[in-house]
């Protein structure tokens, strides 16, 4: 199976899952991590009436910007929350991104997500991307991540926000992640024979 056919498969399947389900969990091996992000950004770009919040716990915002610059630079409907730059000692600022001092500040993260969605037009379709749930588990006690996950699920359901939770297989060290991801409406498990 070629890489390009995997990506084509993702392009077909992932947006459908996101649109048809309130909450989607995507379990993927690290080698398809970039492809999934590309597909998600392409999807968000295709929806002109959408408003999205992309929470990054894996890569600094500026790394994502450098990686996908052409794809995301002009889309002002995607707002970012970066939980890793500050803890990595990166002090760059950006008006399109909120920087949180540490991925352990889950209440702060929840507050900023809520504040950002308040800026969205009521009529727009709203999306929340958590990249990734497994990385969050690396930094936090599993019990707290569970509570935070339940909080996000409830808030996004109440506000009609489609939420997507990435789980990177290589980080899936905890049984707790498997339990949490089963609470989503749809699980997409990306394997080599995806199509």
């Amino acid at each position: 199976m070629t890489v390009s056919s995997i990506v084509e498969g993702l392009r077909e399947r992932i947006p459908k899952s996101i649109m048809m389900n309130q909450t989607v969990g995507i379990i993927l091996p690290d080698k398809y991590y970039r492809d999934i992000k590309q597909v998600i950004f392409e999807f968000l770009n295709s929806k002109s009436d959408s408003f999205a919040v992309y929470v990054t716990i894996t890569r600094p915002y500026h790394t994502i910007l450098n990686e996908f610059g052409d794809l995301i630079a002009n889309n002002k409907n995607i707002r970012y929350v970066d939980c890793v730059s500050r803890i990595a000692g990166i002090s760059k600022m950006d008006p399109n991104c909120i920087f949180i001092e540490s991925p352990t500040m889950l209440e702060k993260l929840g507050l900023e997500i809520n504040n950002l969605f308040r800026e969205a037009d009521e009529k727009s379709s709203k999306y929340l991307i958590i990249d990734s749930l497994s990385t969050l588990m690396v930094y936090n006690d599993p019990e707290i991540v569970t509570k935070f996950f339940y909080y996000l699920i409830n808030v996004t359901r109440a506000k009609d926000i489609h939420s997507v939770y990435l789980v990177i297989e290589e980080e899936e060290a905890d049984k707790q992640i498997k339990k949490l991801i089963n609470l989503t409406d749809k699980i997409e498990k990306i394997v080599d024979s995806f199509i």
Partner: peptide
Amino acid sequence: MMYLSTKNGVELTPLLS
């Protein structure tokens, strides 16, 4: 949990643990 932000002042959110 209480945060003080320059934009919104006092912000409150339920404590997770």
